[in-house]
Design a binder for these strands. Structure first.
Lengths: 345, 345
DNA sequence: CTGTTAGCGCGTTCAG
DNA sequence: CTGAACGCGCTAACAG
């Protein structure tokens, strides 16, 4: 009968001392046995392991990491919006690489709120994380300064924070937006609407500037009546497209700067087609980020494609490269390539 | 000049002792100041807080939680597949409620692998988590038995594990699948294919039995040539539908048991329409789980709708109810309702 | 109001 | 091969 219930429902975990007592040895012998470096009689080892089993003992990692030389094995991860189908896979990429390196991740959602982000970072540091991965919200410069995080290794993902010398992994936002917009221009479109996220966000700026640059190449300037740059979610993106389509002279094509806007736009397009609009009267679309069900698009669609899971993995690898380096490394920024994928010409 | 760099890039965090030294007081005074319960001269407090700032000091939560009576503030979360757009929002729901209760989550991805899940749980326990939230992979009974987790509060989400008395939050899988299938039957369909996930998974069984029950109500039995129950991802789901459509007598409608299968099926349908197939010759669809861009479906579509974020939130709330209870609570199972949403009749 | 003592769980160091 | 002492960072309890 292996009754292993410990000190009641809310009780603490059993300690090495309890195991020692039960096995009739000293705590040191238990420690040695569990360390697996030998130096304990096999028979004693068996007794110890038995006691471990019976009590359901697990070494207290917090106490262990207290000792000099030991590491916490924790990586802090702060993400802006886990609800976005983009960031689930991103977190997965981080988690997988962290697991390969024997680390666990402690995860917080910032909701694009710099204060919340600062709280999270402070808490993470208090938990002795070995490194930090952040998708920074706009204006998160303060709490990431060297005087706040000390020498803690940090890697930013997706977005940079100007004025901070931190490792960063971003996408080729400008190039992707440029090529996407150019594809529309090459197809003959001249009135190209823009659906994007908040101006203050790094990717928002970059993708808009790629859009601008492509227009400029054709001697065009953005027509600001066609530009909506404040949608963070699918609903408002759909509404923004609706407004564009109700203009006296609506755009013939749309560049949308992220998956929320692309999906909102496509949903609105779907609704209009169901209401009887001819697909030929609806705009062509190029969107940043992959989306599922792109295959169903009733209008010409291309996406600027990349894998968020890979972005997460690369970000984590960069962190571990720094963690395992002995010499100081200067901060680097990597730009991951994106590919323009034509779903429906 | 606030040079706050600590002991070099890889150095440990500054300690209370260092702060005390810098402020010219004892560690206790620092502790008291930070605890904010008064009993320290205002001027001394200022000196202490100054030193805290200058050193970039954060209390070591691991050391704190070592003390009797203190809690770690950590909730362990093990999810089967963070890459699934279902589980990002689920994790968000958990995180948000945890944050409300002042807890942080430590997250691991199991990839449906029971061994990995067991490892994660063991590690989490070693980190002194206060509670555990798991989306159990099939056959994860062993490492969740009371002799393994002791009195640690655990809540399962999405799936039950038979033989274990654990709090569980599931969806109305059977009812949802029943109503979805019934809708197809009521529309006159008799050859209704089934696309589902692995048989061994709890939800897979339940949703299939709902499908069966609806058929039975019409005196029908599942035609096993129309049933594919091993697809875990979008690609294989699309391939499974393709096989169904190539049958001499293909199904006129499909019930798909989760978002991966629904999306795979819709993609395949989209491809065929682009290849020239008439939408009228393609099956109607009812799918479990909401999907984005459902609006674009070219065939009749309904979804069995529910919010994974809310599932996560409810799961977390159940955990905290247990954590904050003083008396032991018997294990309970909650079944969250789902709604049948007709996207396109 | 402030400092000293002691101990949380663990593992290194040194004795036996 | 095994155990005792010590200290990691922190704070409750007890002086002063």
């Amino acid at each position: 009968m292996t009754r292993a219930r410990r000190t009641g429902p809310q009780g603490r975990q059993p300690t090495i001392k309890q195991v020692a007592e039960r096995a009739g040895v000293s705590p040191m012998t238990v420690s040695r046995t569990l360390a697996g470096r030998g130096g304990v009689r096999p028979e004693v080892q068996r007794r110890v392991l038995e006691a471990v089993q019976e009590l359901g003992y697990h070494r207290n990692e917090n106490a262990r990491s207290l000792r000099p030389g030991h590491r916490s094995g924790l990586i802090g991860v702060a993400i802006t919006n886990l609800g976005n189908p983009y960031y689930g896979p991103f977190a997965l990429g981080v988690e997988e690489v962290a697991a390969q390196f024997g680390r666990r991740i402690i995860l917080g959602n910032t909701g694009e709120d710099a204060d919340r982000e600062a709280q999270l970072v402070a808490d993470f540091i208090g938990r002795q994380i070995e490194g930090l991965i952040i998708v920074p919200s706009a204006s998160s410069a303060d709490h990431l300064g060297p005087d706040r995080i000390g020498g803690l290794p940090v890697v930013l993902a997706s977005r940079r924070v100007y004025g901070l010398e931190l490792d960063t992994v971003v996408l080729d936002d400008i190039g992707g937006a440029f090529r996407g917009t150019k594809q529309l221009l090459d197809a003959g479109h001249r009135r190209i609407g823009y659906l994007g996220n908040v101006v203050s966000v790094f990717t928002g700026q970059r993708r808009y500037s790629g859009y601008e640059a492509a227009l400029a190449e054709h001697g065009l300037e953005p027509d600001l009546t066609l530009v909506h740059r404040s949608q963070q979610d699918v609903e408002s993106a759909g509404a923004a497209l609706a407004r564009l389509l109700e203009l006296p002279e609506p755009p013939t094509a749309i560049f949308s700067a992220n998956n929320r806007n692309t999906i909102g736009a496509l949903s609105e397009i779907g609704r209009r087609i169901r209401a009887g609009t001819d697909p030929g009267d609806l705009p062509a679309l190029v969107g940043f980020d992959d989306i599922e069900l792109a295959d169903l698009s009733p209008v010409p669609l291309s996406v600027i494609s990349h894998d968020p899971r890979q972005l997460g993995a690369e970000t984590a690898r960069l962190l571990f490269r720094r963690l395992e380096a002995t010499d100081p490394i200067p901060a680097r920024t990597f730009e991951l390539p994106v590919t323009l994928r034509t779903i429906r010409p």
